[in-house]
């Protein structure tokens, strides 16, 4: 039993060490500043600038989060403050199933529904030129739908943990229910809300297959949400295994994985620490 537990703890350090060793090859050869801030990606000539992938990842994640934040907050507030308990009982399995649908199935749905929708309606609506629909925005919509159940679940727990007496205190001072939510409940829940979105962000940042299937995968720094992008996870998924013949390419992809791992870990850690602190007080 002790062995198993030690194994678990070693796993985290193991992953870090493994990825670091594997990507050391490229970190040694190319300065970190060039890896992170150059947009020159020509593996065959030994040029590895990750900027297009990093920027794409940031775009997709941010737009997805922007779409998810209002939806999550409104729904979680409605379910915990206004809605009949019966609706919450209906929503629980809905959220569970949405959270359980595999990412490839989301990707398939994106290809069948979202991509045509973006191509035929949204792009013309915003005056864009003809477009395949495989773009940052499609990726962000699919991603938003994927992280919404995950975030709502956390938010519901956070709103439920706020003592009822606090609501009663505000109401007894003549505030309406909405004012109570605005000035008291949201303020009380604020750290929890931040960490819920932090966890959602790291979930979105690492999501691979669903985004990969709808985002277009063109190596270029995107300048608008209707342009194709090429996020980091997609880079790894599309090229790994094929590139073993070029030693440094292999290392470059491991570097991408390391980058992903570190960013996700940091956001996860911060959010979880906030939640733990909340539980203590």
């Amino acid at each position: 039993m002790l062995l198993c537990t030690i194994f678990i703890i070693l796993l985290l350090t193991g992953i870090t060490a493994g990825l670091l060793i594997k990507s050391w090859h490229i970190i040694e050869k190319i300065p970190l500043s060039e890896l992170l801030f150059s947009d020159d990606w020509r593996p065959l000539s030994g040029k590895f600038g990750f900027l297009p992938f990093i920027i794409s990842s940031v775009w997709v994640t941010m737009v997805a989060l922007l779409l998810a934040i209002p939806a999550c907050l409104l729904t979680a507030i409605y379910l915990t403050q206004y809605a009949h308990r019966r609706l919450l009982r209906i929503m629980r399995p809905v959220i569970d199933i949405l959270a359980g649908i595999p990412s490839v199935v989301y990707g398939l749905w994106g290809v069948l529904v979202i991509v045509p929708l973006v191509s035929h309606f949204l792009v013309p609506l915003f005056g864009g030129t003809q477009n395949t629909g495989y773009c940052i925005f499609s990726g962000a919509i699919v991603l938003a739908v994927m992280i919404i159940p995950f975030i709502i679940n956390i938010l519901i727990e956070i709103f439920k943990a706020i003592p009822e007496e606090l609501t009663e205190a505000s109401l007894s001072l003549g505030a309406t229910h909405w004012e109570t939510i605005k000035y008291v409940i949201l303020r009380k829940a604020w750290p929890g809300i931040i960490s819920a979105f932090g966890l959602g962000l790291s979930r979105a940042f690492g999501e691979t297959m669903a985004v990969l299937m709808v985002v277009g995968n063109v190596i270029k720094i995107p300048t608008g949400i209707f342009q194709p992008g090429y996020p980091l996870p997609a880079l790894i998924a599309n090229n790994y295994g094929e590139m073993l013949s070029i030693d440094i390419y292999d290392s470059a992809l491991m570097f991408a994985a390391l980058l992903l791992f570190i960013i996700v870990l940091i956001f996860n850690m911060l959010s979880r620490l906030i939640i733990i602190k909340l539980e203590v007080t």
Binding site: I8, I15, G18, L19, G206, T208, L253, V264
Partner: peptide, 26 residues
């Protein structure tokens, strides 16, 4: 116990593509 839980929660948040890349190098 709480630190182990914390580590497990972190591991739970690691993207599956990272597990894939790690598994492949192993």
């Amino acid at each position: 116990v709480n630190s182990i839980r914390f580590i497990l929660d972190l591991l739970w948040g690691v993207p599956s593509i990272v597990y894939g890349a790690f598994g492949f190098s192993v």
